[in-house]
């Protein structure tokens, strides 16, 4: 029993790292642009379909497909911010909300029109292989996905920490007026940030294909998942998104194993309500 539970926890951590990467995109966008991307999960599902298409047409492994998809998503995010979202910066939250809900509705139903409601599986040749470490049996796909998610996250941390552009973006988040005063091109930096946020989602969505089958209905569910993670970890905190992702991954896996799989997200929401009530800024967040 205890070794099975240990297995479940490890699986949860691995899944949680992919969740964390997805939530990271949301957190970066909110932390800098101050816009809550209500279409976040829907973008993840677009990436899942892209990975599915690349795999079924070109036999491209999602671990490789991740790179072109993330790059494409960066472009989409950049354009989206420049053309659609920029006029809404500084407008009331509910107006931004309606705008992005409109985008989300179009994505979900557009996918439904193109692909239909059925789930599209990506059958990798190593889908059922696992590593055996002592009493542990770990899925190969999950391990690779988690390592890839960690790598992308590490890259992102390094970008924000060490590059000039990354520092400039952090400056916009910390003090917008100050950033504008020293001559930073805020509009361009916002578009870059949105692009980076969507690149995270693109990468995470591609990896998700190894864990779940693509279907349009996943969109709203993933949006909620990303929100839950980001709030638990702290909106705008990068490390928080990762820790929140792991927490949710483990809580889902344990609830699914110990109680019943259909109740698993109830525990995530209970966790969210508890965090909001006792530490609304999130585990690692700063109070704004």
């Amino acid at each position: 029993m205890s070794s099975i539970l240990f297995n479940v926890v490890v699986q949860g951590i691995l899944t949680g790292l992919v969740y964390g990467l997805m939530a990271l995109g949301l957190s970066v966008i909110f932390g800098v642009v101050r816009v809550v991307n209500f279409a976040h999960g829907e973008f993840a599902v677009i990436a899942m379909y892209a990975a599915y298409l690349l795999f079924s047409a070109l036999r491209l492994d999602p671990l490789i497909a991740m790179l072109p998809i993330a790059l494409g998503f960066f472009g989409i995010g950049y354009a989206l911010q420049r053309l659609l979202i920029n006029p809404f910066i500084g407008r009331p939250a509910h107006e931004q909300f309606i705008l992005l809900v409109g985008v989300a509705i179009i994505i979900v139903n557009g996918l439904l029109m193109i692909f239909g409601p059925d789930a599209r599986p990506t059958n990798l040749s190593y889908a059922f292989d696992s590593f055996a470490i002592g009493p542990l049996f770990i899925d190969k796909v999950r391990t690779y996905a988690a390592i890839a998610a960690l790598a992308v996250t590490g890259l992102l941390f390094a970008f924000f920490r060490y590059t000039h552009t990354g520092t400039a973006i952090r400056a916009c988040a910390d003090n917008l007026v100050g950033a504008a005063v020293v001559g930073l091109d805020v509009k361009r930096l916002y578009a870059l940030t949105f692009g980076i946020g969507l690149a995270c989602v693109g990468a995470a969505g591609t990896l998700m294909v190894t864990i779940a089958d693509a279907t349009p209905a996943l969109g709203p569910a993933y949006t909620l998942l990303a929100f839950t993670i980001v709030i638990i970890g702290g909106l705008g905190s990068m490390a928080g998104a990762l820790i929140g992702g792991i927490l949710i991954g483990v809580s889902e896996a344990c609830a699914g194993f110990l109680i019943t799989p259909s109740m698993k997200s109830m525990f995530s929401f209970a966790l969210l309500i508890a965090v909001l009530a006792f530490r609304p800024e999130g585990l690692l967040g700063k109070r704004t």
Binding site: I98, M113, P117
Partner: peptide
């Protein structure tokens, strides 16, 4: 007859309305 067509227009209408008469 593709499911979702109506909702796509609906989403576009929402974006247009919030853009033009917020």
């Amino acid at each position: 007859n593709a499911p979702g067509t109506k909702a796509v227009f609906y989403g576009a209408a929402l974006i247009a309305i919030i853009y033009l008469v917020p």
